[in-house]
Amino acid sequence: MVVIRLNRGGAKARPFYNIVVADKRARRDGRFIERIGFYNPTAVEGEQGLRIAQDRLTYWKSVGAQASPTVERLIKQASQAAA
């Protein structure tokens, strides 16, 4: 099964997450199929905190990929910001 989930990066106490499409059996920070965006929870005022490639997200959902609950929340947050 293919899932859309967060892949953690960044330094200790400074998290940075990539939104990736990966096989469910792969490790959290292991192999992934495609990177479709990022989430920076510690973004300051001038920086972009969230970016998702909507066209790739739509494609992966159309072929059966399931988003994690956190990614679902971020998708809703991104769509509200775009509106």
Rank of each mutant, 00 (worst) to 15 (best):
N7Y: 14
V44Y: 14
A82H: 10
N7R: 12
R5S: 04
V44Q: 15
A26Q: 07
G37S: 09
R28T: 14
F32V: 01
Q77T: 09
V71M: 01
A83M: 05
T42Q: 15
D55S: 10
Q77I: 04
A13N: 06
G30R: 12
I75G: 07
R73G: 02
F38W: 15
R27F: 07
K61M: 12
A83N: 12
R28I: 07
Q77L: 04
Y17S: 00
K76N: 07
L50V: 04
R56Y: 03
Q66R: 14
I4H: 11
D23S: 12
A22L: 02
V21P: 07
T58W: 08
P15A: 06
S68K: 04
N18P: 01
K61L: 15
Q48R: 14
A78N: 02
F38M: 09
V71F: 06
G37P: 14
I33P: 01
Q77C: 01
Q66I: 13
R31V: 08
R25Q: 08
V44H: 15
P69T: 02
R35Q: 15
M1T: 08
Q48F: 09
R56N: 02
R8L: 05
A67S: 15
S62E: 13
T70G: 05
A81K: 14
G37E: 12
I36N: 08
V44M: 10
N18C: 03
K61C: 06
L6Y: 01
P15D: 05
Q66T: 15
V44R: 15
T42M: 11
Q80Y: 12
I36S: 06
A26G: 06
A11M: 01
V21F: 05
F16S: 00
R25G: 07
A81G: 01
D29M: 05
T70E: 03
G30I: 04
R73F: 05
G30T: 03
Q54I: 09
A11P: 00
V3H: 06
V63A: 05
R27W: 03
R73M: 08
A53D: 15
K76Y: 10
A13T: 00
F16I: 00
A81D: 04
G46N: 13
R25I: 11
G10H: 07
G37W: 14
E72L: 06
Q66A: 13
L50R: 08
G9H: 10
Q54A: 14
A65V: 05
T58G: 09
Q48T: 13
V21K: 02
S68L: 00
E34I: 02
Y17W: 08
D23G: 03
S68W: 05
A43C: 04
A22G: 00
A43V: 09
V3E: 12
E72M: 04
S62D: 10
V63H: 08
Q48S: 07
L74D: 08
Q80C: 06
A13Y: 09
D23W: 13
K61W: 02
K24H: 10
R14S: 02
V3R: 15
R28W: 10
R56S: 02
R56L: 12
A22W: 07
G30Y: 11
N7S: 13
P41E: 13
V2D: 12
V3C: 08
R5F: 03
L74V: 01
Y39K: 07
G46M: 05
R8N: 04
E47T: 06
R73H: 03
A26T: 04
L57K: 05
V21E: 12
E34M: 11
I75S: 06
G46K: 12
